[in-house]
Design a protein around this nucleic acid. Structure first.
Ligand code: MN
Ligand code: MN
Ligand code: ZN
Ligand code: ZN
Lengths: 148, 148
DNA sequence: AGACTTTTTGAGAACAATTCTCAAAGGAGT
DNA sequence: ACTCCTTTGAGAATTGTTCTCAAAAAGTCT
């Protein structure tokens, strides 16, 4: 059994919930993608495996996966939320290109201690750091220069 | 004339657009609030001044105010975007309490240089740093402890 | 001022992402 | 098999946002 399955199973048990077939399919689909995905994309993946699962169940299962600490909502672009699994894949910075939508990732190592000490100062119980940087990726910057 | 009005007027002129009465009312409303507001809240403020302005025009004017550098979209909570004016009010960190929704702000001074040097390394043209920290404010942390 | 052109507007329809409803099905314990 | 929950699919409903379009307003030129 995959580690993520064990984690989800335990989480559900603690809540008095069951790891049903639809939930299992959604879980596996979420861990079969190694980049960001939207609800729609996740739904299509699940449907490819078994057309039995409904979109409503995908929407219902997502918050459970997040509460279990397996997934994170990482960005929002073109009015859709993007998710990604975070097991063994710590939270990170997202560099989002305004022009082409490309997303680069980099680690939070340098930023984290600063935020943590601020949190201590504010007596704020830190649960999640969400750092998104908006701008122009090098490719788009280049082609913009070429136009001029 | 307020500085923000001059900035908006100039911005509109550059675009061949006009500072009309509805746009002026929306602009003033946005600068009459000194905290975060949703579209709905801005609309209600404008309507209080003059019931002539429509919600569609508020939606149409918001991106103009943002492009003019007067407003920023700062957070998203309970599926609504929050905005705030940023004239003479640099971008900052938002500390968002998961329980009560309270938002604390703090400056980006320590984080900014780190992100800037990363940007240089990635040849990324940085336009905006969006740093939101999710967790528990000290009040909610306290009352959570008292329950146990 | 009048004619012409372009921009802007309000009202409501349309749209799209998400949530809700509800009756049927499933599962664990007895 | 009976009871008591939980879960589900399907589609309706909701909600934030965008679009459409005809009318009004604001220039511009004469
Ligand atoms: Mn990521
Ligand atoms: Mn703010
Ligand atoms: Zn790009
Ligand atoms: Zn709180």
């Amino acid at each position: 059994m995959q580690e993520y399955e064990k984690i989800f199973r335990d989480f559900l048990k603690r809540r008095g919930l069951k790891l049903t077939e639809p939930r299992k399919l959604i879980l596996d689909a979420a861990f079969s993608v190694h980049h960001h995905f939207t609800v729609e994309q996740l739904f299509r993946l699940v449907k490819a495996e078994s057309s039995l699962v409904s979109l409503a169940t995908v929407y219902r299962t997502l918050p459970l996966l997040i509460e279990a600490g397996l997934l994170q909502q990482s960005m929002r672009s073109s009015s859709r939320d993007s998710f990604e699994h975070i097991l063994g894949h710590p939270r990170h910075i997202h560099w989002i290109c305004e022009t082409c939508g490309a997303v680069i990732e980099s680690d939070l190592d340098e930023v984290k201690p600063i935020v943590e000490s601020d949190a201590e100062r504010f007596k704020f119980e830190l649960r999640e750091i969400k750092l998104n940087v908006i701008g122009l990726c090098w490719k788009c910057k280049q082609s913009e220069n070429n136009l001029q």
